[in-house]
Each structure stands twice: as C-alpha cells, then as structure tokens.
Amino acid sequence: MLANADHVMPDELKFEGDKAFFFAALDRADLIVHGRNSYEDQPNSPKRRRIIVTRKVGAVARDTENPNATLWNPHGAAFEAARAQAGVHTGTVAIIGGPDVFDMFMDRYDTFFLSQAPRVRLPGGEPCFDGVPARSPEQVLAAHGLKAAESIILDPAFDVSVTAWRRDNASSAARR
C-alpha cells in the first residue's frame, strides 16, 4: 500500500532514509510525472519540471498555477506530446505515481524502485499497483519483465528497504 484508505500517505509510512533516497532521485530527474494526489512537498518541488496526469484538460496544456508543470490527459494525447510540451526531449523521467500512473508506464520502465516498510500495515489502503493485494508488488513487476536487482536498507530500525527492479538492456533498447 502506498496510502491509507483516504488516499493519504500517513506519517507511519514516512521514513527519513526513504525520503532522502526519494528526494535525491528526484533531484537527478529531468522530468517528473505524477497524478493529482502525488506531490513530493519539499523546497525544490516547485522548481522541478513535471507532468501532472489529469482529466481536467482534453489533451495537453500548461498549468496556469505552476510554470514548470504541464497538464496531460493520456486519453487525449500521447506521453510524447506531453513531454514535448514540457520541453523535455531526453533524460531521466521519474514516475512518482499513484497507482494509475504507475500502471500506465509499467511496460516502459527501465528501472522501478520499490520501497517497502514491512512493519507498516494499512488495511483497506491504496495499493501501489493494479492487482495488489491479490498479487504482490513483486509479482506485478516480474509480470511486466522487470527483475529484482540490488537492494538498499534505508532504515535498519524499521527494516525499510528499496529494491531496484530492472528491465534487461536488450528489452529496453527494443522499446525505444
């Protein structure tokens, strides 16, 4: 689960090591894609070029509230059109969710970083991917051709870790 039943990430799911890993990855990204409920809420946030997935526009539009944001309706335009509107043609794209956004890119990821906090339980919470909890997040990633690679312990006191799930290079080259 990535949020509680109210679609809010509760404090018990927030760990300093995980936040540091997440923010460092965002600092390296050239573009961030997320849904309307996902936002990283830190001082650098408004400075980052981003695409916000929304049904409020027909296809692609500038966000009048944030000059670094592009609004994108995937039912009205391809991702490449949104990326072009955002002015990002190459580089790293960070997909920070939520579940519908993750699912849109499932067959395009080169790497998906799956953070886990095994001691936290969010009954009735919002799953990270479609099909969870009937299948585990690991099963979903594997079904899309990703394989578990290196893992890092982010908070040893709470067993919080992140695992890089990677697509082999031959498959990645064929998708581009």
Rank of each mutant, 00 (worst) to 15 (best):
L31Q: 10
L31D: 08
D168R: 15
D130P: 00
A69I: 02
D159S: 13
D110R: 14
I32Q: 09
F113N: 07
K19W: 11
I52C: 10
K14T: 08
V8Q: 13
M9K: 13
P156G: 10
S151H: 11
R167P: 05
A5Q: 00
H89Y: 00
D63L: 03
R167A: 10
V132Q: 02
P127A: 00
A149H: 06
I32K: 08
K14V: 12
F22G: 07
E126I: 11
D11S: 13
R83I: 06
E126T: 15
A29P: 10
A149T: 09
N73P: 07
L13P: 02
A59S: 13
K19D: 13
F21L: 10
R108V: 09
A142R: 14
Q116E: 12
R108Y: 11
M9L: 13
V120S: 03
D130G: 13
A5V: 08
A59R: 06
R28C: 09
D18A: 12
G87D: 04
H89A: 15
M1K: 05
G124H: 09
A86W: 00
C128T: 11
R48N: 04
V162W: 04
R166Y: 07
L13N: 09
V33L: 09
A134C: 00
R55C: 06
N66M: 04
F102E: 06
F129N: 04
F158C: 04
S171M: 15
D41A: 15
D63I: 01
V140H: 01
V132K: 07
H89T: 14
I32F: 09
A84F: 00
K14I: 14
A173V: 15
A82Q: 05
A143D: 15
E40R: 12
P156L: 10
L71C: 05
D110Q: 14
D155M: 09
T90F: 07
Q139W: 00
L154G: 04
P10E: 02
Y109V: 04
P123G: 03
M106L: 15
P123R: 03
E16D: 13
L146N: 05
F113K: 01
R121L: 11
D6G: 07
P74G: 04
F129R: 03
I95Q: 01
D6Y: 10
A94F: 04
Y109Q: 07
L71E: 02
I95D: 03
E138C: 06
G145D: 09
S45E: 09
G145W: 10
P74F: 02
V8G: 10
L31T: 07
T163E: 06
P156I: 09
F158E: 14
W72F: 08
F129W: 08
P67F: 08
V120C: 03
L13A: 13
A78V: 10
G76N: 01
H89F: 14
L114G: 03
F15T: 03
P118S: 02
F23T: 12
R166T: 14
N4S: 01
R119K: 13
H89W: 00
G98W: 08
R135Y: 06
S161E: 11
D41I: 12
R62N: 04
G131W: 05
K47D: 09
R62Q: 12
E150N: 12
S172P: 06
F21Q: 07
C128N: 01
E16I: 02
L141V: 08
F112H: 02
L141I: 05
Y109T: 05
A61D: 04
R108T: 12
G125E: 06
